[in-house]
Amino acid sequence: MAHPPTLVVGVHLVVVEDGRVLLGRRKGTSYADGLWHVPAGHMEPRESVTRAMAREADEELGITIAERDLDLLHTVHHLDHDGGGGRLQLFFRPAHYTGRITNREPDKCHELHWWPLDALPGTTVRYAAHALGEIARGNPLSVVDRRR
C-alpha cells in the first residue's frame, strides 16, 4: 500500500501598498540566493498555517499580524521532481498589521524593496512571480510542475 504524499507547507506574505509589493533579496540561504521573494517561511510542527504566517511576519519584518487578519489569496501546488507530493505554497495578505516594516533578518535578506506589481524584477523567484500574477487575475489556485 502506497503512503500518502508528505507536503511541505510554505507561507508567504503579500504586502501591497500604493500598487507596490514588498520583496526581499535573499542571501545566505540554501534556496534562491540573490533572487527577490515575498517574505516567506515554513510551517513548524503543531503550528497552524495562520500562526506560521504571523510568526514569520514578526521574525522577518518586525510587524504584528493577528491570525484573524490574514486573508488567503492564492495557493500554489508545487509538484516536485523527486516524485513526492511537493509543496503547498500559501500566499496571505494582511488586512491589518501593527509596527514598522524593517529587515529583521539581514543575514538572510540583503534588502527590502517595494516593486510595482506590474514591473517585478526579472530576478524574482519564479513561483512567487507566478503566484502574484495569478493573484492579480483573481485565481485562487495554481499548479507548478517543477519536474519539467
Rank of each mutant, 00 (worst) to 15 (best):
L22C: 11
V9N: 07
G10M: 04
A57V: 14
L73D: 12
T64E: 03
D33Y: 04
E67P: 02
R146P: 00
D145R: 04
R25N: 10
R51Y: 03
E111C: 11
A136F: 06
A128F: 08
E47C: 01
V15K: 08
I65C: 11
L90Q: 04
A40T: 15
L90E: 03
T123Y: 00
L73E: 11
T102M: 06
D69R: 06
G85P: 05
M1T: 11
H96D: 12
V21P: 08
Y97I: 03
P5E: 07
Q89Y: 07
P45Y: 14
G24I: 09
V144M: 10
G19T: 01
L132Q: 00
S30V: 12
V15Q: 07
A128H: 11
W114S: 02
I101Q: 10
A119F: 06
H78Y: 15
G99E: 05
H78M: 08
D58N: 10
V38W: 14
C109Y: 14
K27P: 04
M43I: 10
P5M: 01
G99C: 03
G10I: 00
E111Y: 13
Q89P: 00
T75Y: 00
H77I: 08
L132E: 02
L13A: 14
S30A: 13
A136L: 02
L117V: 09
S30K: 08
H78F: 10
R87C: 04
E111F: 02
T29P: 02
V21I: 14
L61W: 11
G99F: 01
P94T: 01
L72W: 13
H77S: 06
G99L: 15
G86C: 06
G62D: 09
L112I: 06
D58L: 15
M53F: 05
A66M: 14
A131N: 02
V16L: 07
D69V: 04
H37Y: 10
T50N: 00
M1I: 02
V125I: 08
N139Q: 15
L35C: 03
E60C: 09
V8D: 05
P106G: 13
D107I: 07
N103H: 09
S48C: 12
A57N: 11
R51E: 13
D118M: 02
P121V: 00
G99D: 08
G85L: 13
L61C: 14
R68F: 00
G24P: 06
D71G: 05
V38Q: 08
A2Y: 12
V76F: 08
T98D: 07
G85V: 04
C109I: 15
H113F: 14
L90Y: 14
L88G: 02
I135T: 00
E60M: 06
R46L: 12
R87D: 14
R20P: 04
N139I: 10
Y97M: 08
P121S: 01
L117W: 09
R51I: 10
R147Y: 02
R93H: 04
G41M: 15
R46W: 03
R148C: 05
R26C: 02
D107G: 04
V9C: 04
R87W: 04
E67M: 09
T6G: 03
G138S: 12
A57D: 03
L7M: 03
